[in-house]
């Protein structure tokens, strides 16, 4: 196991460390997924190295072999270096061919202004590069790791995928996140218990301009907290001079019961003047709630 895989394993999500057993329904979905991919012959996958796309890429290799699979990583300042390392580790371990492309959403003022549909501009840039890159290699089917649970979220990026005819077989076949984790665990994919890891721009409240400097601050702060031993879901939300830390409930209780000074020092060291600990802890889409995009 590569060193960076070991690092990922060290941040297991406490909630999913004891994952549910794989169900008959989940196995049936996986069989359907393999058949769906085989019908297409060759597939290119938008590959971040997260739980969903890692599973999808591994199944694709299983279904059509490495010669029929291309995992494409879109790299930009909003893509954490640790996530890139996890993606490469999975690809190396499972023999997944990888293509890396630089994306330039940061140069798009519509993206940088950080509106509530920011993800649309990011995904438009991503797919406008990935789809032609796949086509140039004779691959007509481009897929992503959107799952059935994602469909209820605020996800403006999905519209960009639809415009570019990107398919989401996990969602289409009804895979839940829990099923993907369980099936990943059964396949020995080290991401099975990895916390969700959306792009770094998701740490900035809507309307706060996305800049490489702010994203780097967030990335440094989260990396410093991981180094302290923070496990499970973690977000450092950027509120200008103040960083607001969201921890998984178990970790929040643990740190409050101990001493929060190391959290403060670690995040201050990443370049924030002030540090606060969110008392509700981690919430997926927390800034959607703060921005009034979804209900509290």
């Amino acid at each position: 196991m590569a060193a960076n895989e070991v690092r990922r394993l060290a941040v297991f999500d406490p909630d999913v460390h004891e994952a549910a057993p794989t169900t008959v329904a989940a196995r049936a979905r996986e069989a359907a997924l393999i058949a769906w991919i085989r019908d297409r012959g060759r597939v290119a996958i938008g590959f971040s190295g997260g739980v969903d796309s890692a599973y999808l890429a591994c199944v694709a290799v299983d279904a059509v072999g490495p010669e029929g699979t291309l995992a494409i990583i879109g790299r930009s300042p909003s893509y954490p270096a640790e996530q890139w390392a996890a993606a490469r580790a999975v690809a190396d371990r499972f023999g997944i061919p990888v293509l890396e492309l630089d994306t330039h959403e940061m140069e798009d003022p519509r993206y940088a202004a950080n509106p509530t549909n920011r993800c649309y501009f990011c995904k438009s840039e991503l797919w406008s590069l990935l789809v032609p890159a796949a086509a140039a290699r004779g691959i007509a089917t481009v897929i992503d790791g959107t799952n059935a649970d994602d469909l209820g979220d605020h996800r403006p990026g999905a519209a960009a995928a639809k415009e570019q005819r990107v398919s989401s077989p996990l969602a289409m076949l009804g895979f839940t996140k829990a099923e993907i984790r369980a099936l990943s665990r059964d396949r020995g994919i080290p991401t099975w218990a990895q916390p969700s890891s959306p792009c770094l721009s998701s740490r900035l409240p809507y309307g706060t301009a996305v800049t490489p400097t702010r994203l780097a601050q967030v990335e440094r702060a989260e990396a410093a907290l991981r180094t302290l031993g923070v496990r499970g879901d973690l977000r450092v939300r950027h509120h200008g001079d103040l960083a607001r830390i969201e921890l998984h409930a178990t970790e929040l209780e643990r740190w409050l019961a101990a001493d929060c000074a190391p959290l403060h020092d670690a995040v201050r060291g990443a370049g924030f003047e002030r540090v606060a600990l969110d008392l509700r802890g981690f919430r997926s889409g927390s800034l959607n709630v703060l921005g009034g995009v979804t209900a509290a």
Binding site: L256, D265, R274, V275, A276, D278, L279, L290
Partner: peptide, 21 residues
């Protein structure tokens, strides 16, 4: 913590955080 977050919600806040240091 539970009572603080509930109070915050009652007062119209979606988030409440404790400043460290």
């Amino acid at each position: 913590r539970g009572r603080i977050t509930a109070l915050a919600a009652e007062h119209g806040f979606t988030h409440v955080a404790l400043e460290l240091g």
